[in-house]
C-alpha cells in the first residue's frame, strides 16, 4: 500500500513543482508592482543593473527582453522616463536609472 501511495504522489508533486517554477519566473505578468506593470519593472531592473557610463540602449533591452516587442519596450521606457525613474543620456536611445548611484 505504501508503494502505491508513493508512486501516485511522485508524478503529482513533480508536475506542480514544474508549474510553480514557470509561474515564479515569468511571474504574474499582468499584476502591477509598486505602481509599475511587470513590463515596466523588467525594463527598469535591466537599466538599473547596467553600469555603463552611457546607460542601456533600446537595442540591448530588446535583446534581453525576448517577451517584449520594441513598441512595448519604448512605451515602458517613456513611462519610466516621465515618472523620473530613468533619463536619456547620449541620445534618446540610451537610458540610465536615477536611483543607481
Amino acid at each position: 500500500r505504501k508503494n502505491l501511495m508513493s508512486t501516485l504522489r511522485a508524478p503529482q508533486s513533480f508536475h506542480s513543482a514544474g508549474l510553480g517554477d514557470v509561474r515564479g519566473y515569468g511571474g504574474g505578468s499582468s499584476l502591477p508592482m509598486n505602481g509599475l506593470t511587470a513590463h515596466q519593472s523588467q525594463v527598469l531592473n535591466l537599466i538599473k543593473n547596467c553600469h555603463m557610463p552611457e546607460g542601456v540602449s533600446l537595442q540591448e533591452l530588446k535583446s534581453q527582453l525576448h517577451n517584449m516587442s520594441m513598441p512595448t519596450i519604448k512605451q515602458a521606457v517613456e513611462f519610466l522616463s516621465s515618472e523620473g525613474h530613468i533619463y536619456s543620456t547620449v541620445d534618446d536611445d540610451h537610458y540610465k536609472s536615477t536611483d543607481a548611484e
Binding site: 515618472e83 523620473g84 525613474h85 530613468i86 533619463y87 536619456s88 543620456t89 547620449v90 536615477t98 536611483d99
Partner: peptide, 20 residues
Amino acid sequence: QERIRQNKEAALRRLAERNV
C-alpha cells in the same frame, strides 16, 4: 556632458515630485 547632467536632474525632480 552637460545635457546628460540636466536630463538627470530633471528626472530626479520628476521622481521627487512623484514621491511627495
